[in-house]
Design a protein around this nucleic acid. Structure first.
Lengths: 348, 348
DNA sequence: ACAAAAATGAGGTGCGTACCTCAGAAATGG
DNA sequence: CCATTTCTGAGGTACGCACCTCATTTTTGT
């Protein structure tokens, strides 16, 4: 049998109330007594039963996931996963609220965040670019006792508790190796495309990509980043222009979204098979492009794990419980057609 | 507030006892009444609080992880992860017992399994080759109400509840694409090495590898499998022989363990950089080989996730609760030097 | 219509913990 | 050494659910 608080009390020679005071750092216990209890805990190897504790605490973890209102397949995937997570989380007395904010408006984001404490939210997962107002908002939230984790894109200069996401610089390096090895020995040109270089994750990926390309594949020339600002027309324009200027381009590296539009264009130009295309995030478009051989590899993070990790971290921070670093480490996943994960279907 | 059993009773116009009977399928309730309760549950969106339920049930999930007593780094990794999982599992009232069995003796394995029910074990995770005695043993365990999951290597023709591991055939295909693309256009030879072809996972990997090689890279010739039976000397012998017979060999595919011995040999022969080496399982040896550029890629499964998944599945089966297929789907991970996961260290 | 059987209700106890109150004991300061 | 402050103990209630018993009602079959 696992020891309970009662065993601790007996072992330490104190009453239940005192054990309780020590366990929950309530005031009014002498240092000497605290020590006695701690030793009893250590001796018996007592581990607090969090299930029972939370039951008694009547705690319902109210969390908010704050995302930009961008129309991208990646955000859509996040939403889907959040949805399924929400229904499962109910059984673990966790509520998930999804909130969108105008992507270009840091002030309204900050204002929105400030309404969360009074709504009883205990933890926030946030995917947003770092701005001064946001920094202040996060500071205030933390002071009010909320747990704050950065999602997907880190907010390193803020007081966020944790970052849940992959190391984007390493992800960029990974793309570079694949690109380099897929292209072979000869001199080659590689184009890079992004939605916008304002997002930290895109910048970091590009840095990692360039770093490794320069070091390991000096014969490959990396062209400047083409930005498409989320517009299909703009994308077709800049890519077409690039292809006329550098008709021999051997590879395209896609920093952010745009898989669908790009592969469609390359298909129209009959270039899909010749050009090596590597991108990020396993969206439905990316899946079908991989499957059809129009993309060669996708570097991604498991969005389901991402969400679950964020939830676990939030709960841990709210509980002031240590987190299992190994479990929370998200892998940089390489997906090709051959290891494309099946759309999960219940095997039962 | 979340609805509780009391709300259901009120809504359905029955007593608490009846709700309880329905929820836990206890006998003695008319179909009509069951329906009324079910409808009330649906109407209020009731979700049973599993934490409270398990608390009341006094359930301590006693599980056993049964592994061969092989001295391999992969099994070592499993043991390490089991160890950390065990300490965390305590807080979730789950006990993990690790049991080793003589790798070559299916009868003693079966005998060992038969002792589990009387020890109060409720769920078993099993990594073992499929044999007739094992099939019978699993059948008996299931009849006695134990949950049984196959770990790493599936036991498809047994009555196991679930398989926790990757699709090894797809993993073999993935290795083949990488090998093919890394080797480039020209005609090449690839050697394949395994500890033994008696293990199902090795066989399936080889099948997947050959399948894709034949289809996509017909110019590459795949040599017959070299078996080393876990002996470093034997390995050095067969590899040296193979290299004298086919000095131009461009790649080596390692189906199972032996990373350390193989890379050391290639290093001695000054071939490590020229020959593309791809293998399975991210063991410490494989890590350092990747890091030193002596291996080019490793296809692996996240052992931590593997264990946690097995635990979740076991708990779900014991609880007779549905499992979240998405969460339990293990990815086939491709690891190169650039996305080598850091040894996890606590970021706090 | 009546006995037997089946279904339901009422109520209790316990799981391990949190949190509260109040009385009494121990330590402290002057 | 006494008054005051600080600790400690004893006990209760609650959380949401499982599981048990026994009395009572309703439904069967005949």
């Amino acid at each position: 049998m696992r020891p309970t608080v009662i065993d601790i009390a007996r072992e330490a020679g104190v009453s239940l109330a005192t054990v309780d005071r020590v366990l929950n750092d309530r005031p009014g216990v002498r240092g000497k007594t605290v020590l006695a209890v701690s030793q009893a805990i250590a001796r018996l190897g007592y581990v607090r039963d969090m299930a029972a504790a939370n039951l008694a605490r009547q705690r319902n973890y109210r969390t908010a996931f704050v995302l930009p209102d961008t129309q991208s397949q990646f955000v859509e995937t996040l939403l889907t996963e959040l949805d399924t997570a929400a229904s499962l989380a109910t059984a673990a007395r966790t509520q998930i609220e999804v909130i969108r904010f105008p992507a270009e408006d840091p002030h309204s984001l900050a204002a929105l965040l400030m309404t969360l404490p009074e709504k009883g939210v205990a933890g926030v997962a946030l995917m947003a670019p770092e701005t001064p107002v946001l920094r202040d908002a996060i500071k205030t939230l933390r002071q009010k006792g909320l747990a704050v984790v950065a999602l997907v894109s880190d907010l390193p200069n803020t007081e966020r508790d944790h970052f849940v996401g992959i190391d984007n610089r390493a992800a960029g390096r990974t793309c570079a190796v694949l690109m380099g090895r897929f292209l072979g020995q000869g001199p080659q040109k590689v184009a890079v495309m992004a939605q916008s270089m304002l997002l930290r994750d895109a910048v970091e990926r590009r840095l990692g990509f360039d770093e490794l390309m320069g070091r390991e594949f000096p014969q490959i020339e990396v062209l400047p980043t083409l930005e498409n600002h989320g517009s299909t027309d703009l994308l077709r324009g800049v890519v077409t222009e690039m292809l006329t200027q550098f008709p021999g381009v051997g590879g395209i590296y896609l920093l952010g979204s745009g898989h669908g539009a790009l592969t469609r264009l390359l298909d129209d130009l009959n270039l899909a098979k010749r050009i090596v295309v590597i991108g990020h995030e396993l969206t439905p478009h990316a899946r079908s492009a991989l499957d059809a051989g129009k993309m060669d590899a996708v570097i991604t993070q498991n969005v389901g794990h991402l969400i679950r990790s964020a939830l676990r971290v939030l709960r841990a921070k709210i509980d002031k419980t240590p987190i299992d670093a190994g479990q929370e480490q998200l892998r940089i996943e390489i997906v090709m057609r051959e290891n494309l994960p099946l759309t999960p279907q219940d095997p039962d």
